[in-house]
Design a binder for these strands. Structure first.
Lengths: 206, 206
DNA sequence: AGCGTATTTAATAGGTTTATTAAAATTGGC
DNA sequence: GCCAATTTTAATAAACCTATTAAATACGCT
């Protein structure tokens, strides 16, 4: 079941929400405690240090982000179809976790140690290496069969995450700049999703 | 000439380097003073507040980023050619200012007031509105002439900055992950630049 | 040389932050 | 219903950060 106590869970949730929206430095343990409805000392009682608490949330979240795209290819589809499917899923996942890209970018870019720990995990954990290899194999097969044009798998992956992530990274600014109301924003996001899929499909045409 | 005194200039430089790499919150005025080789009080003497100092650097930098792409179309080229040229220039500009995207993302996303001030500037300053309108006109003309396929100008612009910026946002991580040495990194960046141009050109094909 | 202004510093007030400690409250087993 | 372990709190130490103030130093001008 749940290896966390109720309060511990509340603290984790509060911390996650705050770290995601405000980043590591801008979030204080006092604030986390407040949001979780407990004393600040309790945060340290359960997690000892702020860094510790952050790591637990960070690793979990970031890995889910990476794994989302590399998910096993849905059965009974050709590559192009399944890629479209996966891009859609990835895009939706980030839409549902709009703040995640910010946290990842901030913490990975700002902190060498965290970056190294993260890369170490990515390089050594067979879950991720296998997922990547599998995706790469698919791409190579399609290229050899002439169904898509030659492209480096890294580039393809980068293109997809770039177009996805930047949509949400620029969103807060676009919201102000283009004066989105709720409906306009939804529509914009839908359009960006279409644009992502179109662009990648055209990119892959032989 | 230079309206800054020598020490003032040193402080600005130190602050710029630090804000760019570590962000606003993670940089202290003490640190800036240290790097500039002066007393911490001097930072406040010249710029009164840390926020003030930051603004001066931020506005200048961000506006140069936006303006770079919208530069007037180089003469004697057709649109496709000139677009390629401009994408190259934009990419190179960001390569020469690798840290800039981080600062922009962080500060615009994290701080509503800054975002509003920035958007206000972008919306009202004729330099930027004109540059954008001009680019939009070009795109419309090309579409009507059937030389490129229909696309929303906002989408086209977003695609370009996405592919450019994400290259450098992920770079610190890729550096560790793919264990780049100097040469490998350069090569990777060159490849990403090609990929950007290829992808956009294919995207625009009728 | 000497006065007045601009620059630079040391010292410090006032605030916030993380982390610890010791005591109080709560819970579950018997 | 009491004891012991767990959970929670209040209080506070120690570090650090921004901003200010008043004093010291350098500088330009006559």
């Amino acid at each position: 079941m749940n290896r966390y106590s109720a309060k511990e869970e509340l603290i984790l949730q509060a911390a996650e929400a705050l770290f995601l929206t405000k980043g590591y430095t801008n979030t204080s343990t006092t604030e986390i405690a407040q949001k979780a409805g407990c004393n600040q000392a309790l945060v340290h009682y359960y997690f000892r240090t702020k860094e510790n608490l952050f790591q637990q949330i960070f690793i979990k979240k970031v890995m889910s982000l990476f794994a989302e795209f590399m998910k096993t290819r849905p059965a009974g589809m050709d590559f192009t179809e399944s890629l479209r499917e996966r891009m859609g899923m990835y895009f939706d996942f980030i839409e549902a976790n709009k703040q995640l890209p910010f946290m990842v970018i901030n913490e990975l870019a700002a902190n060498l140690e965290r970056r190294q720990a993260f890369c170490e995990e990515l390089r050594t954990n067979p879950i991720y290496t296998q997922l990547y290899r599998q995706f790469d194999d698919e791409v190579q097969r399609e290229i050899q069969a002439g169904r898509i044009c030659p492209i480096d798998t890294t580039d393809l992956y980068m293109d997809i995450i770039s177009l996805t992530i930047c949509t949400f990274i620029t969103l807060p600014t676009y919201r102000v700049l283009l004066q989105f109301d709720n409906e306009a924003e939804k529509q914009y996001i839908r359009r960006r999703k279409e644009e992502l899929i179109t662009t990648i499909q055209k990119r892959l045409r032989p």
